[in-house]
Amino acid sequence: MEGIEIAMLGVALAVGLAGSGSAIGIGIVGQSAAGLISEDPDKFGQTLLLQALPGTQGIYGLLAGFLIMQDIGIVGAEVVELTASQGASYLMASLPIAIAGLSSGIYQGRVLSSSINLIAKRPEELGKGIVYAVMVETYAVFALLATILMLFGIDA
């Protein structure tokens, strides 16, 4: 494999895994939301807000993917010539958001599912339900930060 292909694998992992985390997380919350809405349709707005939260991991993954693609010229004018070592650097830089995006998306979904149960009984506590989920978000943000710093450090 040339460097460019290894770097492309990094793009695929960042976008694919972090996106999967978001998809699974949103899916879990969506099931809970449907359960609540079938008895109490007035809470649709609140549940929609909660359901959207695990979507951020996918966005972070996409952002990391774009940064790599821009660096290596997939989007833009010309594809940059990369050595295998440079390509591997891109692959490794993609891993933090790929891994943490997958797990934090799933676990954020589980927390938010519980938050749906919470607002079933106490709709006024929506804010607290969100705060618990934001705690999980922190680690996706850290991972994205690590990915970006690593990307900046690559000489290409």
């Binding site: 879990i28 079938s38 079933a120 009984k121």
Partner: peptide, 16 residues
């Protein structure tokens, strides 16, 4: 275990 997500949320609404 998330197969229970729908039913538990619905039960929570019913409990009220």
């Amino acid at each position: 275990d998330t197969i229970y997500a729908y039913s538990v949320a619905r039960i929570k609404a019913l409990e009220t």
